[in-house]
Simulated scan of single mutants.
Amino acid sequence: MDAARVGVITFPGSLDDKDAAKAVRLAGAEPVALWHGDHDLRGIDAVVLPGGFSYGDYLRAGAIARFAPLMAEVVDAAKGGLPVLGICNGFQVLCESHLLPGALLPNAGLHFVCRDQRLSVENADTVWTSEYREGQELVIPIKNADGRYVADRETLTELADSGRIVARYLDLNPNGSLDDIAGICNEAGNVVGLMPHPEHAVESLTGPSTDGLGFFTSIVKRLVNA
């Protein structure tokens, strides 16, 4: 059986596309480089929107990237079931594209935050989290200036009641996200947005842990067994 093909989109200002591609490779899939200005997803089985500062975060984080030609293809494919993972800036792009509800605003302390962060897996049933167990604690780096997740109370209640909160911060909330939300998913569970960076926790030599690799092995296992 051929390896699963997982696309990684590069926007102007992407910083972690190479790291995401490496994580995909370590998980056993073939990373496929995708350019923001293209119109072709190249037959991929899943896609990662990496962290960074797409288009310099001008206007608002992720607000310009949502209009990239390739994002039109991603939105249509996601609505058709394509697995999509947005990490940090990618999470912001998914919210701006209305694939996920809410928004990511400047951190409560108005400072860039970079630290190893404890998380709790709240939903282990998505295509990106199935290798974890509910309640499992992870240590994954965060690095963001606009990581404060906000939504109206009705949306927050719906996310909690429907199990669409994927991860929560433990201990100190690093950015003031409402309800300690670190990641959410759409109703179908194929689109996940995550503010921490799992691609920076896939090797013991360079990361605080290998806790992030499960996001990538989850999708590979799901694709192989599909």
Rank of each mutant, 00 (worst) to 15 (best):
A145G: 13
A160L: 12
L194I: 09
L104A: 03
E154D: 15
G183S: 12
I142P: 01
A103N: 14
S162A: 14
L138Y: 02
V191M: 01
G147L: 05
R168V: 11
P141F: 00
I142H: 04
E158F: 12
A124W: 06
L138T: 00
V166D: 06
V166T: 07
Q136D: 11
I165N: 02
Q117D: 01
V121I: 15
I64V: 12
L159S: 03
P106I: 07
Q117I: 07
H200T: 11
Y169W: 06
C114E: 15
R115M: 11
H98T: 15
V121M: 13
D152K: 11
G80A: 11
L104Y: 07
V192I: 09
T157P: 07
E96C: 04
D161S: 14
E73P: 09
M71Q: 08
H200C: 12
N123T: 11
R133K: 13
G102I: 03
V121F: 07
E122N: 08
G62V: 03
E96F: 02
G189M: 03
P196R: 01
G109Y: 12
L119W: 10
L119M: 10
P83I: 08
V127K: 01
A167N: 05
P83Q: 04
A68F: 01
K143Y: 14
N190D: 14
G147R: 00
E73A: 10
N190A: 11
V84C: 03
G193C: 07
P198F: 02
L100K: 04
N123S: 10
D76V: 15
D161H: 12
R118C: 08
N144W: 12
V74P: 00
R153W: 14
A151W: 00
S177N: 08
V84R: 01
V150D: 10
N190T: 15
A65G: 04
E73H: 07
V191G: 03
G81Y: 08
K79S: 13
P174R: 01
D161M: 13
D76K: 15
I140M: 09
R168M: 09
E122F: 11
A188K: 15
G193Y: 03
H98A: 14
C88S: 01
P141R: 00
E96W: 00
P198E: 02
K79G: 15
D179F: 10
S120N: 14
R168Y: 09
L156R: 06
D180N: 13
R66S: 04
Q92E: 09
M71A: 06
D76N: 13
L138V: 00
L104V: 11
E158L: 14
S97P: 04
S120L: 14
E122Y: 09
N175R: 01
A72M: 13
D152F: 07
P101M: 05
D152I: 09
S120A: 15
I165H: 03
V84Q: 02
A65E: 11
I87F: 10
G81N: 08
A77I: 01
D76W: 08
D161G: 13
R153N: 14
L94C: 09
P106S: 05
